[in-house]
């Protein structure tokens, strides 16, 4: 969604601090950076959203790719426990590191396949458990 001009050499930022009770955090449109990045990284779990990003040519933008790499901090504590869609989110983060995936997610067939796979995995993982 972000349309801010992005440059490759934008300085690498530290991950935002996990939420505390402090209220003096800078707000972006009423939300903290933590909230916005959490929502974004979870949106990546949605194949259609990935397709949308690809159609905006964001997945070929080096700065955006660097941002995806930066978002890997969500796979570590203390951030990990805030993911409410942990499986698909982390899988998407990993897949997005592959250039081939970034190129092919523009294809509706792949999106459809991912959706079917996700829906099936969503109900099958607990079938025998």
């Amino acid at each position: 969604m972000a349309t801010d001009p992005m440059s490759v050499d934008s300085s690498a930022m530290e991950p935002p601090a996990p939420p505390t009770n402090a209220t003096d955090e800078p707000k972006y449109g009423g939300f903290t950076r933590f909230e916005i990045e959490l929502e974004f990284v979870q949106s990546l779990a949605n194949p259609q959203y990935l397709n949308h990003l690809a159609s905006r040519k964001l997945l070929t933008n080096p700065a955006f790719i660097a941002y995806l790499d930066y978002l890997h901090y969500w796979s570590r504590p203390p951030y990990l426990k805030y993911l409410t869609y942990p499986g698909p989110t982390l899988k998407s983060l990993e897949l997005l590191q592959q250039e081939k995936f970034r190129q092919e997610i523009i294809s509706p067939d792949l999106v459809q396949a991912l959706i079917m796979e996700g829906m099936r995995a969503g109900v099958e993982w607990h079938r025998d458990g």
Partner: peptide
């Protein structure tokens, strides 16, 4: 059942209001 945020969720979230 979709194991990820739906489009509606994304459209009504913080990023959307930011946009």
């Amino acid at each position: 059942f979709l194991p990820w945020p739906t489009e509606d969720t994304i459209r009504s979230g913080a990023l959307a209001s930011y946009q």
